[in-house]
Amino acid sequence: MTRNTRARHVRFLRSGWLLLLVPFLLAGCDGRQSVLVDGGADARILTDLFWVMLTGAVVLWIGMNGLFYWATRRSPAPHSQRMANWLVILGGILFPTLTLGALLVYGLTLMPDLRATGDGPVIRVTGEQWWWRVDYTRDDGSIVTTANEIRLPAGVRSTFLLDSKKVIHSFWVPSLGGKMDMFPGRVTEMTLGPERPGIYRGQCAEFCGESHAWMAFEAEVMAPEAFEAWLDAEAAPAVAPTSAEAGRGAALFLSQGCGACHAVRGTPATGRVGPDLTHVGSRHSLAAGRLGTSVEDFAKWVANPGAWKPGAEMPAYDHLTDAQIGAIAAYLEGLE
């Protein structure tokens, strides 16, 4: 064994060690915002598509490299004209035409299922900078407004009517299905048929300004009865927390003018500029997936929203004392 080949073997072994890291990288493919985790039929269709494409690409990659190897190492002599002609006709025309044609037919046959008509709730989602306005239309025609969280009944297809206020956003819950753009002044429609209850994460998928990356939401898939119960509770006016601190917070909320932008149904706060806060304490996240839902998180946000979400329209309330901000946070956290 010459020095040269030994060096090559050592290099190969080192690169082999790197392969051991691959499982750790692949662990990133799991989780509640992964395309490969299917929470419903749509995501399963897309996951299958992904595996078919990946398998095909790997086979092609190996085949092409095999050909390169064969042509440069195994049989480097010039081929006959006849052989070259057949190589071009079969490998250059027939094979790609048939392969791409088959992929096209496969992709097209998937589309009707992905765009099936909804038989569940109709949910209007409006993209704002950088949060989501969510309106459920109930059977009696009444509308229940909430924000930054979408709840869906498992086992039925929900219809989404997507709109935007100012710029283009894109609505995407990777574990539940494909994405759909949201345009100002035009309503796009998509349906999703989630099946497996759980809390998934959605994300704006079209660059929409400086806090685009912080524009997320939780999508909770619930058993149908649990969904109905939740929607009933969501439609009801706010139940204010009873502690003395929260009471001070409620008064401050109104005196500081928060109600000009935010609605807390059942109180004089009826603003429509910012997210509806009627049941904000019962959500899974604050500020469109930016923060958690502890009292401390509410306090951090109220004190300086721009620190957490650059460019946010909400002003900082840093002129208030910590105790005052704590009171507002206690009030909001208690709005369940």
Partner: peptide, 18 residues
């Protein structure tokens, strides 16, 4: 010829506007 066949596949496979 190949391009026209590919253009036509959606017409054959998809039956509705959805």
């Amino acid at each position: 010829f190949i391009g026209v066949v590919y253009d036509t596949l959606p017409l054959i496979v998809l039956a509705s506007c959805r």
